[in-house]
Design a protein around this nucleic acid. Structure first.
Lengths: 203, 203
DNA sequence: GTCTATAATTTGATAGAC
DNA sequence: GTCTATCAAATTATAGAC
């Protein structure tokens, strides 16, 4: 594979990423992907055979982007409060950088469960959750925080960080914000959410 | 319009509600709607003219279902903590009853903003938020809760209640839950979330 | 490797019989 | 009001030239 190939393949992948995350599997058009990449439909098929195959590649990539760093942070040996802060920062920064990411991943999982379940098996959930639970239990024992499960705490952190991005057009519409104001609010929310969570869990 | 008409129309609307909320606008098929209603495509067009028109009806209905009761609760004169409890109950009960609701509404708004913005104008946001903010300010003044804006508090409540339903297949996949376990967790989450929020805002 | 042209399929929509 | 049959448009996919 020479340099030209690599460029073309990458250009198509980038275009596909954009179109799929904006429109979803059902709404995406191979023509749009070809146009955005600067080539034609035939070439997209030449490189990736079918829409379904191309979608799978993109989905896997986005799914990893959604989880990879997060698992690293949760599994790290940072102190609990600092870890929570890092998760919040990670989430909000990632969603700011890839606006369509959470909607795409969650929505496509909901609507195409069959294509996707195999992705879950790549994540060592038991280890990650188990380790995090140990850390939490130790803090509970020390009396620094109230009783809570690692699952519920993680769900709460993710909820508070990710939901506003999923509801972005609604929040903007209801609260009369433009894009700039929304992003400013989300930056400020890093500390708002951290305080909120620490207030909720501290004993 | 006689009884037969009414039945047919209703059956088609019910089928459309199911198909659109499961598949979204782009993924929905008129054929599926006709099949599920027990009639044929031609009849669906006879009653509702086009896919776009039928979608608009369903979307408006779902959008109202999403907001109508919520606005009532937020605008009520319940004491703050009780109001928060009622919002949580309302959200979780509604999402339990209509599983596809939040994903459908938020996702279609993200992907078809042009069709939908007019819905927002039906909600008297300023009044609702303004009244709620007054109630919050009065509690802050009394020293019962910490400083927080009505917007952020509402976003937090909605995040904690709705996000788990949006991430349902992911949560079930990662945490090895079946549907029954998931719903049991969400019921239990009513009190978990209430405690979490009260812990976070109480002074 | 990239293009044009076209086949094959899917799907929204309509005509016309009953 | 409901159906069958069919059209027209959109869209995925392939054949074949360069």
């Amino acid at each position: 594979m020479n340099k030209k190939d690599k460029d073309t393949e990458q250009l198509i992948l980038q275009a596909a990423q954009k179109v799929f995350t904006e429109k979803g599997l059902a709404g995406a058009r191979m023509q749009d992907i070809a146009d955005k990449a600067g080539f034609n439909k035939a070439l997209v098929h030449y490189y990736f055979t079918s829409k379904a195959k191309l979608f799978e590649l993109i989905f896997e990539q986005e799914f990893k982007a959604f989880f990879f760093d997060l698992v690293g942070i949760v599994s790290s040996d940072l102190p609990l409060f600092e870890k929570i802060e890092r998760i919040i920062e990670h989430d909000i920064d990632k969603m700011t950088k890839f606006p369509g990411l959470p909607n795409f991943v969650l929505n496509e999982i909901s609507r195409n469960p069959e294509v996707i379940l195999k992705q879950f098996k790549k994540i060592p959930v038991e280890n990650v959750l188990g380790g995090f639970q140990k850390q939490i239990n130790s803090e509970i024992k020390k009396g620094t925080i109230r009783k809570i499960s690692s699952e519920q705490l993680l769900i709460n952190i993710q909820s508070l960080c990710i939901f506003p991005f999923l509801a972005r057009p609604m929040i903007k519409g209801l609260m009369r914000m433009d894009e700039k104001a929304f992003l400013a609010m989300m930056q400020k929310r890093k500390s708002t959410v951290l305080e909120f969570i620490l207030g909720a869990i501290k004993a």
